[in-house]
Design a protein around this nucleic acid. Structure first.
Lengths: 124, 124
DNA sequence: CTCTATCTACTAGCGTTGTAGTAGATGATA
DNA sequence: TATCATCTACTACAACGCTAGTAGATAGAG
């Protein structure tokens, strides 16, 4: 299955993934951009229509929760990038990731650790 | 800078990255989906308008080449995924990749080396 | 020189995205 | 109870994306 969120939808999903669930007001609060309340509501409603989130009543408000898991969305997005940008080579993608100038030293060190673990756990 | 290709644009860019440069007919040939000639032309023209490709004349045809490098597009796309889907954690993304696609030990070692170099070159 | 294939330029229509306003319901407050 | 704040539903509308058609230029075939 081929999930594809728009920019704004992804912003909203990101909030929901981090918060587990949220009302419109809560989502709005946590978004970086300052959008109108109704705008956020509209985005949530279209996400619901597409089957990516669901809501349950909470007083007069609605509480939204994601139906799509973070990992599934990640897999889908990554596959696309690997295919189209990195010509089907995940290694190329990782190389890119590692040479990204925006990564902090701390992040790089953690990556190194992860790799080391991965290698160790394969050796035997 | 924040590059953002649409799905179809990305398909076309992918062809250009792989071929170095191509005419409309060549791009059309290499696309997975069977689009009308004019459709492909339109996509190329909008890409040009956005400054992502350029063309030079070749007989009565135009030859298009990418102005945006693969790596730049990759960086941009990855940033976005790391931020929004993997909550700013590149190692989470990496874990996903490593477990999803089966990388060889050799590939992992090369990555480790690359990582070490990157870290060394930052220290000073 | 005429016909045909091929190419670009321009135009178009429909669906989606992004943003938000207005209307009406309802819970809280004075 | 009258008013205010807040919430959803519905509507709007411009910009963009995706697809492709038509018109007109031109190179090559005969």
């Amino acid at each position: 299955m081929h999930i594809n969120f728009t920019d704004r939808e992804l912003d909203v999903m990101s909030v929901l993934w981090n918060a587990q669930s949220a009302t419109v007001a809560e989502v709005r609060e946590r978004l970086a951009d300052d959008l109108a309340y109704t705008t956020v509501l509209t985005v949530l409603r279209t996400l619901e229509q597409k089957g990516h989130v669901a809501h349950t009543g909470e007083g007069r408000a609605h509480r939204y929760r994601p139906l799509v898991k973070r990992a599934a969305a990640g897999r889908s997005a990554l596959r696309r990038i690997v295919d189209k940008v990195f010509d089907g080579s995940p290694e190329l993608l990782m190389t890119q990731l590692v040479s990204d100038k925006n990564l902090t030293d701390e992040e790089l060190r953690r990556l190194r650790k992860l790799l080391a673990e991965r290698l160790r756990e394969r050796k035997p």
